[in-house]
Amino acid sequence: MGNHSVATGKKSHLQHHFVDEDQQFESSKFGMWIFLVTEVLMFGGLFVAYIIYRSWHPDLFYMAAQELDVALGATNTVVLIGSSLTIALAIRAIQLDKIKAGINYLVATIGLAATFMIIKYFEYMDKFGKGIYPGSAYSYDGIGHDMAVNFFSIYYMMTGLHGIHVVIGIGLIGWMTIKAKKGLIHSGYYTPVENTGLFWHLVDIIWIFLFPLLYLID
């Protein structure tokens, strides 16, 4: 509940309409969580499409999933879990005012995210090489099912939207790195990096579901 104490001296990052820094921090984080809800539901739409098409064509999903490389998918899962760890470590370091270590962890996170994208790039290129495109450009005939393109349409939509989120995440984390370098975030004010962390963990969670649903159908 709101404005308990009367605002006294204003501190550096406190906006005028908040009573104190705690209220502001809580509000930002709460806002971020609500935003994550919208993200979950947006991806959720694709999961619904996935579930319905899988219930219609279980055989297709089995056949088409054989084309995906489990090793690469698993590697990417590990990479993303690693990046989740590094960003959690970055936030911890910044909370403890070890800004330098924090920056290193943020850079490591960007590195892992980039690794994820590079692996994804090779996966996509491999598919494109075979003529496995989303939609009407699809020209691969190695799968004996006339709905094969449908699986890959869903696959590309899901991983593509996820990939866009990874790229946005890289941008956000890069921005946080710059902020940290300028000394704008520290133990007294680390709201943006906390929220970036939440966003990044959500990207990880979504991949945690995408991996078994797309790659591990047996």
Binding site: K29, W33, I34, L36, V37, V40, L41, G44, V48, I51
Partner: peptide, 16 residues
Amino acid sequence: NTIVFLLSILFLVIFV
């Protein structure tokens, strides 16, 4: 915050 997050899952389950 946990409730908010679980709410998104609940509505997804309703949708599916």
